[in-house]
Design a protein around this nucleic acid. Structure first.
Lengths: 136, 136
DNA sequence: TTAAACTGTAACAAAAATAATTACAATTAA
DNA sequence: TTAATTGTAATTATTTTTGTTACAGTTTAA
C-alpha cells in the first residue's frame, strides 16, 4: 500500500470522533487533512460502505461515526481501505517455462496471506477510542 | 509498498538457491521474472549491499547466495527492500492549526512501527530454504 | 418555494512513482 | 584480444495516485 488511504481514513475517523456526533462537512475535514474535498468524500463513501460512518446529505449535512469509537477496531479501517497485498504486487507475470517462475506466485500469495493475517491481528487489538485517547 | 521489490528480490533469491552455488546471470534471472535485466541488476546490487548475495563480474560472471538458504530469513529480504511504511505515506502534511492534524503524524508513526514490528516478527520465522522447500 | 449549503460521482488533468530502455565503461574468462 | 558479463547513469514510457472541475441531487430554513 503506497497510497495514503489508511492515513486519510484514520484521520477522518479521528475528526469525527472529536466532532462528538455532530455532522462534519467534507470541506472542513479536507482542511484538516490538507487534501482535496472530493478525495475526502470518496473515502467517506468507502467508510460508509463498510459501516464505519453515517452521513446526512443537504444543508447542514456531513458525517459522523456510525458506532462508538470504542467499537471501531483499526483492523476494520485497514480492511476498508485494503486494495493490494501488504508486500506489493507485480505487474507482469513470471515466465511459466521456468520452474520457479511457474510456481512462485502461488507461494507468494500464501506468504502474503500469512503476513497480512499477523498485521490484522495486531490492528485488531487497538480501537479508534484508544488511538485518539493519546491526543492531548 | 506498492512496488514489486519484495516479490522480485524473493524471486531472485529462489533462483539463486535453485542454482545451487553456480553464478546466475542477470539476463537469465530477468527472463524468469519477466522484467528488464537492469532492474534485476539493481535489485542484486541492493541484496549484495545487505549481505544476501555475492557476485562475480566479467565473463561467466553472475550471482549466487552469500550464505546458506537456511540462514536467510524472509525478514532480511523485507528489510533490504523496505522504503516506506507498511501502511502507506501521505504526500502533504496535515493542517497544524487543527488539533488532530497537528498530532496525528506522530501517532501514525507509532502505530506503523508497531505494525511493522509484528510483520517483521512473522517474516523472521521463515527462511528462504523453507520457502523454496515447497516448490515441487 | 426558493436559495444556500451540503453530498455523490463522473470525467478529466496533473503529478509522482515505478519500470523499461539505451548506452557504455569496467571486469573477467578463455 | 574478444566475448560475456556486471555496474550504473540518463532518458523515456507507463501506471498509479492525487487533484480539479462540473454539476445533479438532497436537505434545511428563511
Amino acid at each position: 500500500m503506497s497510497n495514503s488511504r489508511f492515513a486519510i481514513s484514520l484521520h477522518i475517523l479521528c475528526l469525527l470522533k472529536q466532532g462528538d456526533g455532530e455532522a462534519q462537512s467534507s470541506e472542513w475535514i479536507a482542511g484538516s487533512i490538507n487534501i482535496n474535498p472530493v478525495l475526502v468524500r470518496k473515502e467517506l463513501s468507502n467508510l460508509k460502505k463498510h459501516g464505519l460512518v453515517t452521513n446526512k446529505e443537504g444543508k447542514n449535512g456531513g458525517s459522523y461515526l456510525a458506532k462508538p469509537a470504542s467499537k471501531i477496531y483499526l483492523s476494520e479501517v485497514y480492511k476498508a481501505v485494503r486494495q493490494v497485498s501488504v508486500l506489493g504486487t507485480k505487474r507482469t507475470d513470471p515466465n511459466p517455462k521456468c520452474k520457479v517462475g511457474k510456481q512462485i506466485n502461488k507461494h507468494l500469495d500464501n506468504l502474503y496471506s500469512e503476513v497480512e493475517e499477523a498485521l490484522i491481528k495486531k490492528l485488531s487489538k487497538k480501537t479508534l477510542a484508544e488511538f485518539t485517547a493519546t491526543f492531548k
